[in-house]
């Protein structure tokens, strides 16, 4: 008989780590919206799912005394999108969280889960990249903080070590107060993976002030730093040059959702539009 999946609910971080260590091919599960269909469909099913939604401290969105925002790993995408602080101070994240999946899915999926899947099209990754978020994690070797820029390694791959559990993402207070514009193309209007997406965020307290994140055009979600520099230096008048730079930064492939050439071209179109929209705002 086929080996059957094991499910365990952890009530503390320590318990989660222990449960994970017990069996090879364990996986941590938050919303499970990506994990469960994949576990069903493929031959690489995990042997154990360690459910982290029963860990109280992971289920909170907290504003820290420093003004940083901490989003626990079990907080749903919908809760993040609707959270007043997120909407007011970190609108880029609210925008991207609202674009992810469907309404029932957003009620279940989590932001931390979304980035741990490390899909090139992970919507919330675009915002977290622009906002200089940090991933808090803990593993057998102890706790550590991973800057979001070092978090994505390849399609489906993160810099988390085996057994390491992502506890939360933190967004620094200095990233607050900006404006953001999300350009996102998909094959239909409702609920679709982005064929290509560009997030432009302007953060008054940061350098560079302009942040450009690209989705579905590289092995991982990524920033387009040359474009950011150009926009910082020359403002909206650099729109075309920034678009060229972002297109050059893209490494798209051909797949069933679109061709590399179209994706690259659309990076330019979407960024130009975002610059215009924010410039005019």
């Amino acid at each position: 008989m086929q080996e059957r999946l094991d499910y365990r609910k952890a009530h503390s971080v320590e318990e989660a780590l222990t449960l994970f260590q017990d069996l090879p091919r364990s996986r941590y599960m938050a919303g499970g919206t990506d994990l469960l269909p994949r576990a069903r469909g493929s031959g690489q099913a995990p042997s154990r799912l360690v459910d982290i939604k029963g860990i109280p401290e992971l289920s909170r969105i907290e504003e820290l005394p420093s003004g940083d925002l901490r989003i626990g790993a079990a907080v749903s995408v919908a809760a993040v999108a609707a959270h007043p602080t997120v909407r007011q101070r970190f609108s880029a994240l609210s925008l991207c969280a609202s674009a992810l999946g469907s309404y029932p899915l957003r009620n279940r999926a989590t932001v931390v889960g979304n980035i741990c899947n490390a899909s090139p099209c992970a919507d919330t990754a675009a915002a977290l990249l622009c906002l200089d978020a940090t991933v808090l994690c803990v593993g057998p070797a102890g706790p550590r903080r991973i800057p979001i820029h070092e978090f994505f390694v390849g399609p489906g791959q993160t810099s988390l070590a085996s057994g390491e559990l992502a506890l939360a993402v933190e967004i620094p207070a200095a990233s607050a107060g900006g404006r953001a514009e999300l350009g996102r193309l998909s094959r239909r209007q409702g609920v679709d993976i982005a064929t290509v997406a560009v997030l432009l965020s302007v953060l008054p307290q940061r350098s560079p002030r302009h942040r450009v994140a690209l989705l579905s055009v590289a092995p991982t979600p990524r920033r387009a730093s040359e474009a950011e520099t150009l926009l910082d230096q020359r403002g909206p008048s650099a729109a075309n040059a920034a678009a060229e730079a972002a297109m050059a930064a893209a490494r798209p492939i051909d797949d069933v959702r679109g061709t590399a050439a179209y994706r690259r071209e659309m990076v330019g179109v979407l960024l130009t539009r975002a610059v215009r929209a924010l410039g005019a705002a």
Binding site: R187, R188, Q189, G190, V191, D192, I193, V256, R257
Partner: peptide, 24 residues
């Protein structure tokens, strides 16, 4: 869509075979 080397459908799922939603 078929892969013309293998004859396999490339989008035999609702993720990549899209039908209209209420927003369409």
């Amino acid at each position: 869509k078929l892969d013309l080397l293998t004859g396999k459908a490339q989008n035999a799922n609702l993720v990549d075979y899209k039908i209209p939603t209420a927003l369409d």
